[in-house]
Amino acid sequence: MSDEKIPTEKPQSEEKPTGHEVTLLLMSRRGFLRAAGFAVAATGLGVVTGCDTPPAEESTGALPTETVPVRAQYPEVPYAPIVPPPADVLVFFSPHEAQTVEALTARILPGTPDDPGAREAGIANYIDKLMGFNEGFAEPTYRQAPYAQTYEGDTPPDQASPSNQYQTVWVSKDEIDRYGFQSLLTPREIYRAGLKSVDSFANQTAGSNFVDLSEDQQDQILEAMSKGEASGFDNPSAKDFFARLRDDTINGMFADPAYGGNRDMVGWKLIGYPGAQRAYTPHDIHTEGPVRPPQSLAMMHQFHPGQLANSHVAVPVSGTEEQRPEH
């Protein structure tokens, strides 16, 4: 399985840059010092070396060739894509897997065209593109062995056990949750195995694949998974896979639309969250109810100190004497 390219590459287009794109352009190596603000620019005396380059340029996916670490071997967290990735191009899932993810997440957050849920928000697209980066690890993860194995009862398996020929950290099943994420599997492997288990459980209990079942039957399967009562799941367990699906549904539904979910900001409209705003006033803080229509990163006002941030608030000037009053 080769590393998919990061879904954060800047598209090569002649279009006028959005606010977000401008930010990335300014962060290029050459542009950095020029744009680096008053402190360096004003003095010219202090020395700043090793300036940052955007992560989009640094993840090569190459294997380590030296004993000393270089940054590229450990990708940082990717930036939000400038435009949402296309929903009709799959970078990881097979079409059947994508449909199954869509059906599963649509039972976690059900919807209709009038009252959008996970399907309408594009959650399967969000998860597919998440899997496209660094084996699905969008968050840097420590991946050094040995990994943990769990045991039940009071004592770990004895030293004569065949599994003890390998370095293993034995942890009681009751204690393992305290240690957080300890999976040997990558998120890609978790999804591939978990989806297979969902279908085999669906076939075993209801006679067909998950996507072909009625909503009631699908709910019963999710219910059994959430309670850890669904059979045939090994690694990930039914409960863990349900939790993973729910977490990713939440992240896709309520993250910025740039990531491929939360299409038309339907997640934010559902709960009354205005998204990426520049400012609120003390008056806003104490006025119950929506005070702004929702806004995504791409819609955000470009940041030029001193300009109006929206109809109410001026962005004050940082590094100068100037500040405009609110309202």
């Binding site: 606010g19 977000h20 744009a35 680096a36 402190a39 990163l297 940041f303 940082s318």
Partner: peptide, 11 residues
């Protein structure tokens, strides 16, 4: 620095 590194980070 605040500008430009933090100016579009509401994510």
């Amino acid at each position: 620095w605040a500008n430009p590194d933090f100016k579009h980070n509401h994510d």
